[in-house]
Design a protein around this nucleic acid. Structure first.
Lengths: 115, 115
DNA sequence: ACATTACATACCGATATGGGAATGTGTCAA
DNA sequence: TTGACACATTCCCATATCGGTATGTAATGT
């Protein structure tokens, strides 16, 4: 065995920053490949390959329009990521509350010290 | 150039399913390495290496306890992922609303047909 | 028909990655 | 002190992945 296949799932597809950039651009609306190439400053084959990965995991859909191909985000495919991360939300809110408590305490001590 | 370094950021750290499993286990509470090894059924060195990656991106903290090392989640490190995904929330809710609308429409047609 | 445009795919090379096995390091127990 | 235990690190290997370049393919324009 060796490295596990990574482009096979949404988490890995999204792990690549270029692909996140692509999704960010498509979040605004449908776009042809060339626009993405221009916006990203990346060579066309690279963009097509990233789009291929995104398509394979269902993160984007395509539509033919003459000799261009219009890509768009399929947002619901991100739900697994959202749900997983959300399960930790409680934990970090807890953390921030604790931090707030500590800060309040420090302020209080500060006031006490000044009297 | 070649492949980009991937373990360097939170998105990639979390892209590996084993590491997500580790975080899930640690979400419950602090645990020594051996417990993770048992729970995951993975060899100890592999677990230690995954923990190393998680530590490097700040997703977990360690605490020495005798000859054991207790790991715990540092949830706030997940916020960048949460925030990014959340920016797409609006899009998929929109999608679901559209789906609901279509379903309602179909139901209506169904009722109409039965009359 | 031919050139051009818009994409996709194939191929190549460099490198990062994960698993396995072996080894190193520090701590506790007898 | 010696052995056992808990964990980290190192080395090796197979492979996936990314970028770059070249090529294939389909649609449009002349």
């Amino acid at each position: 065995m060796a490295r596990a296949a990574t482009t096979a799932d949404v988490f890995n597809a999204v792990a690549e920053s270029r692909r996140r950039e692509i999704l960010d651009l498509l979040a605004v609306g449908e776009r042809p490949v060339q626009e993405l190439v221009d916006a990203l400053g990346v060579a066309q084959p690279q963009v097509s390959k990233h789009l291929r990965v995104l398509r394979d995991v269902g993160l984007v859909d395509v539509r033919d329009a003459g000799r261009r191909r219009l890509y768009r985000v399929n947002a619901p495919a991100l739900k697994p990521v959202h749900d997983w991360v959300k399960s930790f939300e409680r934990l970090w809110e807890q953390r921030f509350e604790q931090l707030d408590a500590v800060l309040d305490e420090l302020k209080q001590e500060d006031r006490d010290a000044q009297q």
